[in-house]
Simulated scan of single mutants.
Amino acid sequence: MRAVEKSDLTGRARLREAALELFAERGFEATSTRAVAAAAGLSPALVTRHFGSKEGLRAAVDEHVLDRIGGELAALAPADGSTLMESLGEVSARLFGADPVLRGYLRQVLVEGGETSASLFGRLLSGARAELERLSEVYGEHGPDEQWAPFQMLCLILGPLLLERVMQPGLDEPMFAPEVLARRSAANQRLLLRGFYGSLEDGGAT
Rank of each mutant, 00 (worst) to 15 (best):
V4P: 02
K6Q: 15
S7Q: 14
S7K: 11
R12G: 06
A18Q: 07
A19H: 04
F23E: 00
E25A: 14
G27T: 09
F28R: 12
E29V: 09
E29A: 10
T31I: 07
A38Q: 12
L42A: 05
L42R: 09
L42M: 07
L46S: 04
F51A: 03
G52C: 01
G56T: 04
V61N: 01
V61M: 08
E63R: 09
H64C: 07
L66V: 11
R68I: 03
G70W: 10
E72A: 15
A77C: 08
P78D: 02
P78F: 03
S82M: 14
M85H: 04
E86L: 15
S87F: 09
S87L: 06
L88D: 02
G97Y: 06
A98V: 06
D99C: 07
V101R: 12
V101Q: 10
V101I: 15
R103Q: 08
R107Y: 06
S117I: 03
S119D: 14
R129S: 15
A130H: 01
Y139R: 13
G140L: 02
E141F: 04
E141Y: 05
H142T: 11
H142W: 04
G143F: 05
Q147T: 11
A149G: 07
M153P: 00
L154G: 03
C155W: 14
L156E: 00
L156H: 04
G159D: 07
L163C: 10
V166G: 05
L171M: 14
M175A: 10
F176T: 07
P178Q: 03
P178R: 04
R183D: 01
S185H: 06
L192S: 01
L193D: 11
Y197Q: 12
G203D: 02
G204P: 05
